Simulated scan of single mutants.
Amino acid sequence: MFTGIIESLGKISHLTKEGENLHIEIKSTLAPELKIDQSVSHNGVCLTVVELKENAYVVTAIKETLDKTSLNSLKEGALINLERAMKMGDRLDGHIVQGHVDGVATCSNIEEADGSWSFTFEYKYEEFSTVEKGSITVNGVSLTVVNSKKGAFSVAIIPYTFENTNFKGIEVGNEVNLEFDIIGKYVKNLMKPYL
């Protein structure tokens, strides 16, 4: 369980294919504090630490994960948003995030405002939807939805988030990972028989 508040940016130092699996080595200031079997959110994808190195660690993404997320497009040197699992009793500064990505979206527009940015994303999942002023997780970042439409939404990014996440590297046409609000998904599922 995560909150969507990014702790650190990691840097992809090595990618190794093994069969249909992808081993991802990440350099991070968090590495010395991690343990084998610990869950860490990587651009919103919950992955298990399988190996520790000096100032780096390794996680493995299987085919199912690669098929449903943007991790298959990672490149060495890319920045990745990192968040360790929340501790019971901590403040929930973002929203409830499972680290189970629902799918990918494509950045369709970026507008710089006077001191902030508006990013618009489009997706093709009819079973999911956003709610105006509701929560959404984009690459692991807990954000508030603005301009919710069928198959699209925007988010407003403040300077702190822009500088301390990989939003600063997102360009129009890039894919990002989406996790829709868990409470919204449960409500929608419960309402299906009545719609």
Score class of each variant (00 low, 15 high):
174 N>R: 03
184 G>R: 06
91 R>Y: 03
169 G>D: 15
20 E>C: 01
48 T>Q: 06
144 T>F: 05
162 F>R: 08
26 I>G: 03
143 L>Q: 12
30 L>V: 11
33 E>T: 15
38 Q>G: 08
195 L>F: 11
3 T>Y: 05
142 S>W: 04
45 V>F: 00
3 T>F: 09
7 E>T: 04
79 L>C: 02
78 A>L: 00
186 Y>I: 15
130 T>G: 06
178 L>E: 11
156 A>V: 13
189 N>T: 15
76 E>G: 02
165 T>E: 02
88 M>R: 10
180 F>T: 10
162 F>I: 04
53 K>T: 03
68 K>I: 13
88 M>H: 08
191 M>A: 15
65 T>I: 11
49 V>P: 04
61 A>I: 03
92 L>V: 15
179 E>F: 06
109 N>T: 10
39 S>W: 00
195 L>Y: 10
10 G>A: 08
10 G>S: 05
147 N>T: 05
135 S>R: 01
125 Y>T: 11
156 A>M: 14
49 V>Y: 05
120 T>V: 09
151 G>M: 08
126 E>R: 08
173 G>F: 03
111 E>L: 13
55 N>M: 14
93 D>H: 01
4 G>R: 05
184 G>Y: 09
19 G>R: 02
32 P>I: 12
172 V>A: 02
3 T>D: 10
59 V>W: 02
104 V>K: 13
175 E>S: 13
159 P>I: 08
194 Y>S: 12
26 I>V: 15
4 G>Y: 05
39 S>H: 01
189 N>K: 15
41 S>P: 13
56 A>R: 11
177 N>I: 11
29 T>Q: 14
9 L>C: 01
74 L>H: 02
